[in-house]
Computed example of a mutant assay.
Amino acid sequence: MVTSRIWFTAAQKAELWERWKNGQSAAAISRALERKNKTGVERIVVLHGGIGPAPRRRALAALRFEEREEISRGIAVGRSIRQIAQGLGRAPSTVSREIRRNGGSQAYRANRADRRARERALRPKPCRLALYSELRWRVAQKLALQWSPQQISGWLKQEFPTHQDMQISHEAIYRRLFIQTRGVLKKELTAQLRTARRMRHPKSHNAKSGQGHILDMVSIRERPAEIEDRAVPGHWEGDLLTGANDTHVATLVERNTRFTMLVKIPRKDTTTVVAALAKHISKLPEELRCSLTWDQGKEMHAHKRFTVATNVQVYFCDPRSPWQRGSNENTNGLLRQYLPRGTDFSRISQSYLNAIALRLNQRPRKTLGFQTPADRLQAVLH
Score class of each variant (00 low, 15 high):
T3Q: 10
I6S: 12
K13T: 05
E18Q: 14
E18Y: 10
K21E: 15
K21Q: 14
G23W: 01
A28Q: 14
A28W: 00
T39E: 13
V41P: 10
E42A: 12
R43F: 01
V45A: 12
H48K: 11
R56W: 14
R58E: 11
A59S: 13
L60R: 15
A61R: 12
I75M: 05
G78V: 09
G78I: 09
R79N: 14
R79V: 00
A85Q: 08
Q86H: 12
G89Y: 01
S93F: 06
E98F: 08
R101S: 10
G103V: 07
G104K: 12
A107Y: 13
R112W: 03
A113F: 13
D114G: 00
A117V: 01
E119G: 09
E119M: 11
R120W: 04
A121H: 00
L122Q: 15
P124N: 12
K125D: 07
C127I: 04
Y132F: 15
V139I: 09
L143S: 00
L145N: 04
S148N: 07
S148V: 01
Q150F: 00
Q150S: 15
W155I: 02
L156P: 02
P161K: 01
H163F: 08
Q164L: 13
Q167K: 08
A172Q: 12
R175M: 01
T181S: 15
G183C: 01
V184Q: 00
K187N: 06
K187P: 00
E188G: 06
L189Q: 07
R194C: 06
R197W: 02
R200Y: 02
P202K: 04
N206R: 15
Q211L: 02
Q211W: 08
H213P: 12
L215C: 07
D216A: 10
S219M: 04
E222T: 04
E222H: 07
P224A: 02
E226Q: 11
I227G: 00
I227P: 06
E228L: 06
P233F: 11
G238N: 00
G238C: 06
L241I: 07
E254K: 09
E254N: 04
N256L: 11
F259C: 05
T260F: 11
D269W: 13
V273A: 04
V274N: 08
A275N: 13
L277T: 03
L277E: 09
K279I: 02
K279T: 08
H280A: 15
S282D: 15
K283D: 14
P285M: 09
E286S: 12
E286M: 11
E287N: 12
L288W: 05
S291W: 08
L292M: 15
L292T: 01
W294H: 14
W294Y: 13
D295W: 00
E299P: 03
E299I: 03
M300D: 02
H301M: 06
A302M: 08
A302Q: 12
K304V: 03
F306R: 04
V312S: 04
V312I: 08
Q313W: 06
C317R: 12
C317H: 07
S321F: 04
W323K: 04
N328G: 01
N330M: 09
N330P: 13
N330F: 10
N332Y: 14
L334A: 00
L335S: 00
Y338N: 01
P340R: 12
P340M: 13
G342H: 10
S349V: 03
N354W: 12
L358G: 07
L358N: 13
T367L: 10
T372H: 04
P373M: 03
L377E: 09
